[in-house]
Amino acid sequence: MTCLRIRDAHAGDRDLLADWAVAMAWETEHKNLDPDTTRAGVAAGLGDAAKARYYVAMQQAEVAGGETIALPVGTLMLTREWSDWRNGDWWWIQSVYVPPEHRRHGVFAALYRHVEQLAKKTPGVVGLRLYVERD
């Protein structure tokens, strides 16, 4: 498995995250998302943690001249759902995307472990749920 670093997404990631959301919607549901609407939606999530939190997996890569840079290789988004039954928040894992060339290298596992550790450290979080499109 490749060594990955997980970081919070920031406003500069908007276009990448929107492009990945468009790709994910096509791959999973054969839906064509409007890129402008998707960019606006990602920007809204990035700008308001109550709406969403995004995380980006980064991998070290060597480029021409031997320089090492960090490349984004995957993402996921968290949203919250209040549970009156448990008096706490469920964290929903959604909008997971790993480009095809980075799949099967532990990217999602690293993102999940990061979010799992955050959930364990955050008072009031009662569990994680993964949104899956079955069709």
Rank of each mutant, 00 (worst) to 15 (best):
T2D: 01
T2L: 09
L4D: 05
R5H: 11
I6N: 02
I6W: 02
R7P: 03
D8N: 11
D8M: 06
H10C: 15
A11W: 00
A11T: 12
G12F: 03
D13G: 09
L17K: 04
V22S: 01
M24Y: 03
M24I: 06
M24T: 09
W26M: 15
T28R: 09
E29S: 14
H30N: 14
N32E: 13
D34F: 01
P35W: 04
T37E: 14
T38C: 02
A40C: 07
V42S: 04
V42N: 10
A44H: 05
D48T: 06
A50C: 07
A50D: 14
K51I: 13
A52R: 13
R53S: 11
V56N: 00
Q59L: 07
Q60K: 14
E62V: 15
T68F: 08
G74R: 03
L78P: 02
T79N: 05
E81N: 03
W82A: 04
S83F: 10
R86F: 08
R86C: 08
R86Q: 15
N87Y: 08
D89M: 06
W91R: 03
W91L: 15
Q94Y: 01
S95Q: 13
S95N: 14
P99Y: 02
P100M: 04
E101I: 06
H102I: 02
R104L: 11
F108A: 01
F108Y: 15
A109M: 09
R113H: 14
E116T: 04
L118Y: 03
K120T: 13
K120M: 05
K120H: 13
K120R: 15
K121L: 14
T122E: 12
P123M: 01
P123Q: 03
G127V: 08
G127H: 07
R129L: 08
R129E: 09
L130P: 00
Y131L: 14
V132K: 10
E133Q: 12
D135I: 07
